[in-house]
Simulated scan of single mutants.
Amino acid sequence: MAGTVLVTGASGFIGQRLVKALCVAGEKPRCLLRRSLPLPPGAEAVNGDLLQPETLTQALAGVDTVYYLVHSMAAGRAGFESRERTAAINFITAAANAGIRRVIYLGGLGETGSGLSEHLQSRLEIGNLLKAAPFATTFLRAAIILGRGGASFEMIRWLVERLPVMITPRWVSTRCQPIAVDDVIRYLTGCLHEERTAGETFDVGGPEILTYREMMERFAAIEKKRVLIIPVPVLTPKLSSYWVGLITPVKPSISMPLIEGLANEVVCRENRIRELIPFRLTPYDEAVRIALAEEEPRTGST
C-alpha cells in the first residue's frame, strides 16, 4: 500500500475483528480509539474522536485508506442521527484536507424510500455523504450480521433462550438476508486490495433469504429449544422494542432503533461483489453455530 490503513470504530463489534484480520494479512493498521484497548501485534493506536475534529489531523497523517465503521447509537437514542451526521462531516473535512484516497464504509441494507426506520435512514445518509466527498468511497450495505457480540445476533439469542412463547408484531414475516460476520470481514479486507471496488456500492448478504420468524425458529432448533411465535396485528415494532429491552441485555438505545427497522425488508438487490471477491458464503445454521462457539467479546460494543 502507498500509505497507512486507518480503522475508525476499531473498538466495535466489526472493528475489533477487522483489525485482527488486517494484522494476520500483514497490514499494520492504525486504530482510532477514544480510550485505550489491547490491540493485536502490528496495530497502532491513536487517540481521537470524530466528534472532536481537532483530534483527527494526527490520526489521518500519511493515511491512504480509511475504514469508516463509526456508529453513534451506543451513546444514546436521543440525537443519534445528528451525532452520526456531525461525525461524518468532521471526518470528511479532515480526510479531504489530509488527501485521503479511499474510504470503505459498512452501512445498512435496505430500500431507499421514505418508509425507512430512523436507523436505516441514518446509515443511508452517512453513505451518501461519504460518496459525495472528494475521495473514492466503497459502500457495503449489510443486513443482520451473525456473530457473538453483535447487537442483532444477541437479541435473537436472548429472545430464543428466554422466551419459549413470543407475542410478536407482523415484522416476523419480513424477509432478511443475514450474513456471517466472518464473511463481512472477508469483504472488507478484500475491498482493500480490489481496486475495482473503489467508488462503488455493493449489497452484501449470506446465501439464504429468511424471515425473522424462520431465523428464530432455526436458531431455537440449533440450541435444541422449542419456541412458539404468535404474530398479532395490534403489536407495533415500537411497542415490541420495549419488551425486547426488558428481556435482552442489549442497550435500549441500540435495540429500539433496530427493532423499529425490522419492518423494512433487507434483501440484496444485486450480487456484483461476489464476482470481484469470490468465496464460499456461510449458510445461516453454520454461522449461528460458529457464533455460539465463540468466546464472549471483550467489550459490549456494537
Rank of each mutant, 00 (worst) to 15 (best):
residue 243 W to L: 13
residue 188 L to I: 04
residue 207 P to M: 09
residue 204 V to P: 02
residue 157 R to C: 02
residue 183 D to C: 08
residue 215 M to G: 11
residue 204 V to H: 02
residue 225 K to D: 07
residue 198 A to P: 07
residue 155 M to W: 10
residue 152 S to E: 06
residue 216 M to V: 03
residue 182 D to M: 05
residue 141 R to Y: 06
residue 190 G to K: 12
residue 136 A to Y: 08
residue 170 R to M: 12
residue 181 V to E: 05
residue 231 P to A: 10
residue 161 E to N: 13
residue 245 G to A: 05
residue 244 V to K: 01
residue 225 K to R: 15
residue 229 I to L: 02
residue 149 G to V: 06
residue 148 R to A: 11
residue 172 V to A: 04
residue 212 Y to R: 12
residue 147 G to K: 09
residue 223 E to V: 03
residue 159 L to H: 03
residue 205 G to Q: 10
residue 160 V to G: 03
residue 248 T to Q: 12
residue 181 V to N: 08
residue 214 E to V: 13
residue 223 E to I: 02
residue 255 S to L: 01
residue 141 R to I: 06
residue 175 R to C: 10
residue 140 L to N: 03
residue 157 R to P: 12
residue 193 H to D: 14
residue 215 M to N: 07
residue 140 L to K: 12
residue 194 E to G: 00
residue 206 G to S: 11
residue 253 S to A: 12
residue 144 I to V: 14
residue 161 E to M: 09
residue 189 T to Q: 06
residue 226 R to N: 11
residue 152 S to M: 11
residue 192 L to T: 07
residue 251 K to I: 00
residue 172 V to E: 08
residue 196 R to P: 10
residue 146 L to C: 12
residue 153 F to V: 08
residue 223 E to H: 10
residue 184 V to C: 13
residue 242 Y to F: 10
residue 192 L to Q: 13
residue 198 A to T: 04
residue 242 Y to E: 05
residue 180 A to W: 02
residue 195 E to R: 13
residue 244 V to E: 00
residue 180 A to P: 10
residue 141 R to E: 02
residue 196 R to V: 01
residue 227 V to D: 03
residue 144 I to L: 15
residue 236 T to A: 12
residue 157 R to L: 15
residue 232 V to D: 04
residue 189 T to E: 10
residue 182 D to W: 02
residue 143 A to F: 03
residue 187 Y to Q: 04
residue 248 T to C: 14
residue 205 G to K: 11
residue 159 L to T: 01
residue 166 M to S: 06
residue 149 G to N: 11
residue 192 L to V: 13
residue 251 K to C: 02
residue 148 R to W: 05
residue 175 R to M: 14
residue 203 D to R: 14
residue 145 I to H: 07
residue 153 F to E: 00
residue 184 V to W: 05
residue 171 W to Y: 11
residue 193 H to V: 14
residue 158 W to P: 00
residue 146 L to Q: 05
residue 232 V to Y: 03
residue 220 A to C: 05
residue 171 W to T: 14
residue 238 K to M: 06
residue 150 G to N: 04
residue 178 P to I: 09
residue 178 P to S: 09
residue 153 F to Y: 11
residue 203 D to H: 14
residue 197 T to G: 09
residue 240 S to M: 04
residue 250 V to L: 08
residue 165 V to A: 06
residue 229 I to M: 09
residue 225 K to C: 02
residue 232 V to W: 06
residue 201 T to E: 07
residue 158 W to H: 15
residue 244 V to R: 00
residue 238 K to L: 05
residue 219 F to P: 08
residue 215 M to H: 10
residue 154 E to F: 07
residue 246 L to F: 09
residue 150 G to P: 10
residue 154 E to L: 12
residue 198 A to K: 11
residue 153 F to M: 06
residue 203 D to L: 13
residue 227 V to A: 01
residue 183 D to K: 06
residue 161 E to A: 15
residue 214 E to Q: 15
residue 218 R to P: 15
residue 174 T to A: 15
residue 236 T to D: 09
